[in-house]
Design a protein around this nucleic acid. Structure first.
Lengths: 201, 201
DNA sequence: GTTGATTAAACGAACATTCGGTTATTTTTA
DNA sequence: TAAAAATAACCGAATGTTCGTTTAATCAAC
């Protein structure tokens, strides 16, 4: 998926160069993840994307809008990947396991994008688009509600559910990326079992 | 505790004003938490601390050192608070519960410092002082090892242990601060019980 | 009067953004 | 269909501002 296929970003344009917009976004994600927000200027993004600084302003109003749109794009991409292979007739247990594995897979296949979202989500910048980014995860909410109705999941809030499923996984993936641990298949399976036991009756 | 009582930061000085250094740190933490690293300049920190920009350079070599030292200071302060009330003759269960509550208390009493550490820890800046910041939590490692030896805790890695104890709590506290949920005493107790069950045999 | 904390002022560099002009594509006109 | 007109992408250079940091002078304490 390119950023222009992302419906909420797409505007009606005639011959803008998709590759150019994508190059700008990729460069920004890469630089911000490597050097942080403070050290990533528009000129550096432009240089890394092989584009004039002025061209960035053809696609984005300003720096803040650029970063916000990138965040929302990555979040939407991630939420779409989470549901890959989850058909409507899956059991709660099956669907949850698939989503769990998809989450791990997305993070390991896209480590830079994953790290970017974590950095953004833990910065004050997230305040301006927290609501919109949460809307992408409605399918996960639906699955949770289904699991509670079927008395598979404990009668807890969605937030506590996530706190014992995706928060631990996220934390371990970050440790894995920073070199503190090796999150191999065995450790991943152990983690899944503890998470499953934690949120099920 | 003031930042000058923090041994690894203290230098031998005669007339330097402790209040001034503390004011600089407090201002930096406040501004960075509110506006992020990119929007927090040395002049803004100086202005908020009622100090000349040049004065900051009396206490800190440069901006990077300032931010790193603040991070390490807050981490050390937090790790010290975690152990408050944990005597040597506590059982594993008692000690863990106390530390758990101390963590929650520190975060709620010092929300800005807590948010600062989360922002820093999720940024690439953390790479330069990850090791040093982890050294503060050796007591927690000791408790974990004791619990494993006594067959109270599951035979898992420290990282997985933390992933199902402090990661969920951290996530819920952040949700609490951002207004997404209310983390009251009851929810906190529920969370503790799930965490305890997740990591104990 | 010496010492060291403190600062106002100033430094070049880098910042986000804009401007004027050019190029590439589409639409209109014939 | 072919050329002309219109449109919008695209860019290099320049805008004024702010950045992190330094310097040289002042101030306060002994």
């Amino acid at each position: 998926m390119t950023i222009n296929e992302c419906s909420f970003i797409l505007e009606i344009v005639r011959y803008k160069d998709d590759n150019k917009q994508q190059a700008i976004c990729d460069a920004a994600i890469e630089l911000i993840t490597a050097n942080g927000f403070a050290d990533t200027s528009m000129s550096k993004i432009a240089k890394a994307a092989n584009v004039s600084p002025a061209t960035i302003y053809v696609y984005f109003e300003n720096k803040e809008e650029l970063i916000n749109k990138i965040y929302l794009f990555v979040k939407q991409e991630m939420s779409a990947e989470l549901l890959r292979g989850v058909g409507a007739n899956r059991s709660v247990a099956e669907a949850f396991k698939i989503i769990w594995n998809n989450f791990y897979k997305y993070a390991t296949v896209n480590p830079v994008r994953f790290a970017f979202t974590e950095q953004f989500a833990n910065s004050p910048l997230v305040a301006r688009c927290r609501e919109e980014s949460m809307s992408f995860f409605k399918p996960l909410l639906d699955l949770f509600n289904r699991g509670v109705a079927e008395k598979i999941f404990k009668d807890i809030s969605l937030e506590i559910f996530i706190a014992f499923t995706f928060s631990p996984l996220t934390g371990l993936i970050k440790e894995h990326f920073s070199g503190g641990i090796v999150l191999d298949e065995k450790a991943l399976e152990t983690t899944f079992e503890i998470a499953w036991d934690a949120v099920t009756n």
